[in-house]
Design a protein around this nucleic acid. Structure first.
Lengths: 256, 256
DNA sequence: CGTTAGGTTGAAAGGTCTCAAAGCTGGTGG
DNA sequence: CCACCAGCTTTGAGACCTTTCAACCTAACG
């Protein structure tokens, strides 16, 4: 049996993180049309490569960073999934997002130079460390990089506004449908199936994110199954009627 | 009676916006330690002045921009208050934020070059138009401006995460307490009283923002009044026990 | 002084949560 | 190979919180 896949390396090592000191190369990365270097010329991508730190493995359930950690790097996800959550003063956590390959983590830390949330790997994952000071140094040289960085931050703002919309004005079934539709489209842009995928998070994590209890999520899954909107087997999901799910999320259609 | 105050100009003119063509000057603006030019040297502030467009009046209830409007400017609020809201596919609106003097509007439009929400003045207000292309041109020249801009965008991300926390995991009374405490601290940083201020938004708008009905907001006000946490007279509010309100928002204390 | 918009209050309904129990699955050890 | 356990999930019943629906109030305004 081969022992060289990322997962196996992480699993067989004693240390859960920082396993890989391999330098990252944007130009050879399959995600570069989705990630920070999007649209960059080859020469500019090389410059970006020079400032990018090592690739870093993060084993399942371990932290990429924790709240209040000093901010030095942004992280681009190479593969795997993460969740980010805040802990309120009552001690309970609330998940603010699930992130997947090609997405950038840590932007909320720029303002105070400390991370505002915990970022935990949902499965064995790998990220590129992007030292922010190095990135700032490149902005003057590569205007395209700067403007794309602004677009990424702006997109994060609109993403969060959509979640506010979801939490502030949708019923439980709408929220859950919107959640599934959102995952679906993100997998689609990554070249995966928009109708069959694996949930990387537990029911509890889904509920926490959507402002629902685990029982409500479970009931909604059962209800959607009964309505033939989807099939579930553990975390394996197949969306049978994506259009109806979209209509449900939009509030156009109701599931009495 | 004088007819030269910002309000009266706006009120007596036929056109609701674009009344003022006076060029803005950051250095003479009382908000420059709160706003985009924060921490800038005098000479850099002058450069910023050169690219900043006119000041623009926005009469109460009229739009600074609308969803899908093409994005050309960011806006810094000089005085007055705004609300921003999204409209979901069902046609109902959801308020994503209330903005006040010194805060920046429009950052969510950078990613798609179209505005993602409506921005409506809650009272007669004035903003500085900041052409984004001009701002981008300055970033290379003034690194401090760029890094402060990044801090502002990052702060917007954390602000929204806090709202997600509020909507996703707080009870109605906690939400309302958190809302009041938030306003209180923002007025405090602007040099106003942290305990006495005027609500610029209707009960309906508060409820919409907090994911509650107008009736719930009204009941919470009555409840808080009964508990001697505050006094209300229409939109005039006095917080009588800010510490207890903070404890309520934090979930440390409960109001049975 | 009637009208209107915004706000308050009450009673009933509804949705989601809480609590509880049971089912399923994968891992462990005999 | 099977029994057993722990963790996650599902399902049910009742409670609770917030909403809905309705009536009433108040201030502003023509």
């Amino acid at each position: 049996m081969e022992n060289t896949t990322p997962q196996s390396i992480a699993l067989h090592s004693s240390a859960p993180v920082n396993l890989s000191e391999i330098r990252a190369h944007c130009s050879s990365c399959s995600l570069h049309q989705l990630c920070l270097p999007m649209g960059l010329a080859e020469t500019d991508m090389d410059k970006l490569d020079k400032i990018i730190g090592r690739r870093r493995r993060v084993a399942r359930d371990s932290a990429l960073y924790r709240m209040d950690d000093p901010f030095t790097n942004l992280y681009a996800i190479r593969f795997g999934h993460f969740k980010t959550y805040q802990i309120n003063s009552g001690g309970q956590q609330h998940i603010t997002g699930f992130q997947m390959a090609g997405e950038l983590l840590g932007m909320d830390a720029i303002s105070t130079e400390r991370h505002h949330c915990d970022a935990i790997a949902l499965e064995d994952s790998e990220v590129c460390e992007i030292p922010f000071s190095g990135l700032e140094g490149l902005f003057g040289e590569i205007p395209n990089l700067l403007s794309h960085f602004h677009r990424i931050m702006s997109r994060e703002i609109t993403r969060e506004q959509n979640v506010m919309l979801l939490l502030g004005s949708m019923r439980a079934d709408q929220r859950f449908a919107a959640f599934l539709v959102n995952l679906s489209s993100r997998y689609a842009t990554r070249g995966y199936s928009s109708t069959r995928f694996q949930l990387r998070m537990s029911r509890e994590e889904i509920g926490n994110y959507l402002g629902l209890t685990i029982e409500s999520v479970s009931r909604l899954l059962s209800k959607f199954k009964k309505l033939d909107l989807l099939k579930v087997d553990h975390r394996e999901i197949e969306l049978l009627q994506l259009p109806r799910l979209k209509a449900l999320a939009a509030g156009t259609e109701s599931c009495g």
